[in-house]
Design a protein around this nucleic acid. Sequence first.
DNA 1: TACTATAATAGAATTATTCCAAGATAATAA
DNA 2: TTATTATCTTGGAATAATTCTATTATAGTA
Lengths: 139, 139
Amino acid sequence: MERIVRKYRGKGFKLTPQRIAILKFLEGNTNHPTADDIYTEIKKKYPTVSFATVYNTVQALRDRGELLEITIDPERKHFDPNPSAHHHIMCTGCGKIGDVFFDYSESLGLPEEVTREFAVTGNHIDFYGVCTRCRAKTS
Amino acid sequence: MERIVRKYRGKGFKLTPQRIAILKFLEGNTNHPTADDIYTEIKKKYPTVSFATVYNTVQALRDRGELLEITIDPERKHFDPNPSAHHHIMCTGCGKIGDVFFDYSESLGLPEEVTREFAVTGNHIDFYGVCTRCRAKTS
DNA sequence: TACTATAATAGAATTATTCCAAGATAATAA
DNA sequence: TTATTATCTTGGAATAATTCTATTATAGTA
């Protein structure tokens, strides 16, 4: 809370109660929530919160580089409050998403026919797998 | 056309005129079209074609492993008629998507804390960059 | 304490995708 | 070649995710 105020005060980012609730929910959250997950959570404390507020807030955070939008799940967007470069793995059984903290950058050189056309700025690896729980179910 | 008939005949995949048009449009297509791109194209020849047909067909092709669904663009799904393992790069200026044919699998080992939880089955790398045309515009 | 730029809200609008019921037809077998 | 049937196509409705809009509220600043 203190940390949140310190981080955003005087940066042109108004700390409203709803935003603080969203920031608290996201802080240290490794569940990669969707907009709906955030909405559902904040609604518990602020029953009149709207989706627009959730989307506005995540967009403002993304624009400030505080939040990543994750595309690994074709069904919907997920958000990751850890903006440092890392990768993700999704369980093809239940959709659970995990973080992959490993720097592969040395290995990700591109073939010449690609660099001829694109000036590369970044990368992100999607891994797919089956989580412990889903393996238990199947067997 | 001959190739298409040969490939799908007797596989429980009905070759309707609309499907043949979709298959022809996709064959060798490296533009990574969206469902709307496919629909717009097929509509030229079959004005009454519906989105349901497009989605049904790409889904049937995906289920047969003939088509990949690409998630690199958060805005919408793109399709790739080349089902072999490869990666993609998207221009952050115009959204153009290019193919990356390089096998990185040797380099993509996962940290132990991930393999403890997930049995890995696959991976896909999203690269981001700026294409030649967009660089020309900006400068 | 007042001011103002920014944010919150409800609900409509938009966009992508899926579903559905009815009629049509490709593939198969007779 | 024809009849049969499982599968496909279609238009439109339904759903889901996200964005937009107008209005009201309020955090941060002066």
